[in-house]
Design a protein around this nucleic acid. Sequence first.
DNA 1: ATAAAACCTGACCAGATGGTCAACTAATAT
DNA 2: ATATTAGTTGACCATCTGGTCAGGTTTTAT
Lengths: 214, 214
Amino acid sequence: MTDNKINKEGRIGAANKQLILNAAEFEFAKHGFKGTRIQQVADRACLPKTNVLYYFKSKENLYLAVLQQILDEWNSVFDHATKEDDPAEVLAKYIAEKMEFSLTRPDASRIFALEIINGAPNLKGFYKENNVAWMEGRVEVVQYWIETGKIQTPNAYYLLYHIWACCQHYADFSAQITHLQGKQMGESEFEEATKAIISLVLKGCSLEIPEKYR
Amino acid sequence: MTDNKINKEGRIGAANKQLILNAAEFEFAKHGFKGTRIQQVADRACLPKTNVLYYFKSKENLYLAVLQQILDEWNSVFDHATKEDDPAEVLAKYIAEKMEFSLTRPDASRIFALEIINGAPNLKGFYKENNVAWMEGRVEVVQYWIETGKIQTPNAYYLLYHIWACCQHYADFSAQITHLQGKQMGESEFEEATKAIISLVLKGCSLEIPEKYR
DNA sequence: ATAAAACCTGACCAGATGGTCAACTAATAT
DNA sequence: ATATTAGTTGACCATCTGGTCAGGTTTTAT
């Protein structure tokens, strides 16, 4: 038999936990850590507050769980891109992915942004180390592309920042965009915007835009 | 004689108010509205908490004053650009200005970002109206440049968003950048980054980069 | 000089909120 | 069947914090 003496989580637990995590992501994205009330999360999940505390021992614990869930989703084609790959294809795909994320998971993007603006006090050791390693690997690839004349851009780091910045803007600043344009961006507008970023970045790197992204 | 019956603010008042505003900007940028304690602001300004409340009736009032101060700084060469101006010059100058702002006033940028991510609940009527009008005027100019073939870019709105996004990134996400690069960006790095954005955007719009921005 | 306004601040309070607890019910394994 | 664990929840508390107040001192105008 399996050893299920203690702390075994049943079906109900798993379901409720996910329910709470989703509610929490919404609230944290909207009000930040300090601004979010456990009661609000509970209300959104249609559970009593005490129940939320039953599954997540504390507010901080809940927040960390939300953050972890977001970080776990953070992977892309670019992770495994190599020096031999076609820069235009890889970058265009990467941008398309990032924009897809901004469209489908804006709250996740906002929570991450809030965390960074606050100085990333909760992105502890393990993630940070990993992140730096990831970045170094990616920069190395881009650097190779630059040195072999495959792309023309002044700096690998800055190029990646600019891609992130443009893509995240559509999630983080959607309130401003909605206001300036008089209406919320839908799927079709996101497609246009994606093409606009791809056009800007690839042309900005002296690359041809692959047919499918035109 | 001047009518100074009531509510006249003396020298001391003006000085202290500014002291408090600066302290508040720092704290609000770091912890957000909800996360900031009046006591923290007071400590940073080296004044007792009660004194802060004396000048600004409430926390919200203080926050609005900080926000207003930031908004008042928000003007640029691009405000008065016309259809006749040279797109390359105007855009390059605009980017340089925005980056200068990110370098010298990162806290202001962060507060604005937090405000937008939160859905801009405090950017009330007057500012919003003005902002939309400003945007329409700018889009009209860019649109003219597009239609007359002076620049090549898919969409005027998106172009402006991408410029903002790139420039703000260096203020709002500086914690991430510092961590990824292993050191804080100084003036010289900001100069490089500015040139990188100008290169990206101008090339991305099929424009020649003016000599002075190379 | 002196009155009025501006400025200062320790003591205090009321409400909000994260978190505990104990008593309960429902699920599950043997 | 029954014991054990998982899940549920209302009542409650300690603390934190925005804000008030009253009684002061300093500055300024005439």
